[in-house]
Amino acid sequence: MSERDQCSISGVGVGLRHEHLSDILAQQPAVPWFEVLVDNWLSEGGLDRSAILGMAERYPLAFHGVNLNLGGVDPLDMAYLARIKTLMQDCQAAHYSEHACFSRYENDYLFDLCPLPYTQESARHLAMRVEQVQDFLGEEMLIENVSSYFEYQSSALDEAEFLVEVSQRSGCKLLLDVNNVYVNAVNHGFDVTEYLQRIPQQLVAEIHLSGHDRKSGYLLDTHGTPVTDDVWRWYHYAIQRYGHVPTLIEWDHNLPEWKILEAERIKAEHLWR
């Protein structure tokens, strides 16, 4: 489907953050790939532009976005998507992933990954917009499950069914965030095993691992702590079920030193092997 040069990713990578850039470029650690939070690297010039191109020369990169408003009802921002497409070409990125959620309504930006109702209507709507993105990029994209803190009464499908429905309608693959599955399982009281078993092996193209905070009465997805023991256990289960899917250590807030992230990556790599 794709006509551009693109790298492939394998093994356990790390989410690239500005704070670690100088360490990475200086030490050139043996990390098989990095995931780029593309919204942070769309500047047209300056240090960031130079750094991301420098990273692309050294490492395979996958692109991950948060601002497309993929599940929203406003028209997709094609100018924003065009900038992503250009950067993907420049960096020969492996793929582009976004979230199965919405982040904007009319002119109000929510700056969060907001859950959709899990209905057939939503699934059709999201699949149609995924197709629009894939047609524009000329390649298959990945969609990721998000953490949530409530459920809509109108949801007739469970989350796994919804993701599979969207994937099958649009032809996209899934980016399975095991932490988000666990957070939602605790917050909404479902069984992680059943969730993972509902997702066919061939649909999962990438896995995310991250940390959460335990609050009074719920789990808050912070991406700001080490991966918890529960999530490591479910990752082990997921790898057994889905095989050697590229996996990412994702850490966005309260960023630790690079060596701590690297230690998390190595821990995941032991399970991945």
Binding site: G72, V73, F102, Y105, L110, C114, T119, H125, Y152
Partner: peptide, 14 residues
Amino acid sequence: MAIEATLASFRDAV
């Protein structure tokens, strides 16, 4: 669309 009303109510709340 029902989804539109749901998203609008989310925006209004947040």
